[in-house]
Amino acid sequence: MTPRFSAGTRVLVKNDWPEERGPCHIRTPHYLRGRSGQVERVLGAFRNPEDLAFARPAETRVLYHVLFDQPGIFPTDGHTPDKLLVEVFEHWLEAA
């Protein structure tokens, strides 16, 4: 499986809210939706938890470690250089 993005690529997390459309299980936290970050590392490929959670046949998807500026997401302490580093599946990402 060839990863679509590589380390250093700017990516955008889809601003999608499947939990509003019905029962689902997703591993992309709410606070990242619509946010942009940078791929830190390709972590490998894993079976899609969104299907595994319902015992459906689950395709393998590329998983990335993506780095986000923390103050841009939670601006309570905007003076710090802090970051959020989160595992995000490829189907949640677009090129930024």
Partner: peptide, 17 residues
Amino acid sequence: TEHPTEHTPAIHDIGGI
């Protein structure tokens, strides 16, 4: 107010709420 959307996260999705 800083959250740009009107969406309500699922019950377990509690980061930063």
